[in-house]
Design a protein around this nucleic acid. Structure first.
Lengths: 123, 123
DNA sequence: TTAAGTGTATTAGTACGAATAGTACAGTAT
DNA sequence: ATACTGTACTATTCGTACTAATACACTTAA
């Protein structure tokens, strides 16, 4: 369910957070379904449990999952973290536009590329 | 000409690279005009000369400037680095679109925001 | 030729974050 | 009771980013 890409420069815990975010948002992981336990997933990925723990803690802070002590971590019903997540995303997008403008990349070029990328990966 | 923002999380040399890139692309620094010397700018900003040096080395590798030993650094005539720069930019944009798609941000939302940001900062 | 200015190269030091390891504690289920 | 689960804390290792210090090489101008 989860794969680690050691070519990816991002830290492991961040990759794990990202993967679960996508699985949850896409509905592949249904609400209230259980995530693999910290120790089990750590074993499966051959990494330290603390790394998984860190990822789960972040996911909890973002509202994607909720923990029950002694039982496990579960997918949240309403993802309250999404709006905040999106807000940050739009901040990044704003920075990106600023960068483009500074480099003389026209609005049309920007839009055209974005549209293409959106189209490319449509199943 | 150059300011360091210590609130900015980016390293100093990166800020300097960015500033000069913009100054050069916008034509504020004309071709073959001289940049401040490594030591002078370092003195002016109260930082180590090596930090400036690192920035200048990057700018040279990207084709924005060219150095003459013993004389100084100068703005390149044709900025060959720009196409490569833009290629990287579009890669980042592609990643951003992928991220948005994964989180269920629609093409329209994405486009609308980008367009707004482009409009906002128009002088 | 000498002094002052320039870029260049190398090495070292510092700081920070990521990741691991180990241990201990607390709750749940069977 | 036992074996799972999450949680907390500390320490340590490791790699990298960043900055600093110093020495060397070249150019210019007096």
């Amino acid at each position: 369910m989860i794969l680690i890409d050691y070519q990816d420069r991002r830290p492991i815990y961040e990759q794990i957070v990202d993967r679960f975010q996508v699985l949850i948002v896409k509905g592949i992981l249904k609400a209230d379904s259980q995530l693999p336990s910290v120790r089990k997933l750590a074993m499966e990925l051959s990494i330290n449990p603390n790394t998984i723990q860190k990822a789960y803690t972040l996911l909890e802070q973002q509202g994607f999952i909720y923990p029950i002590k002694g039982r496990g971590n579960f997918v949240a019903q309403d993802i309250e973290g999404l709006s905040e997540q999106n807000a940050k995303f739009y901040e990044d997008l704003k920075d990106m536009v600023k960068y483009a403008m500074d480099r003389g990349i026209s609005k049309d070029d920007f839009m055209e590329h974005a549209a293409t990328y959106y189209g490319e990966e449509r199943a």
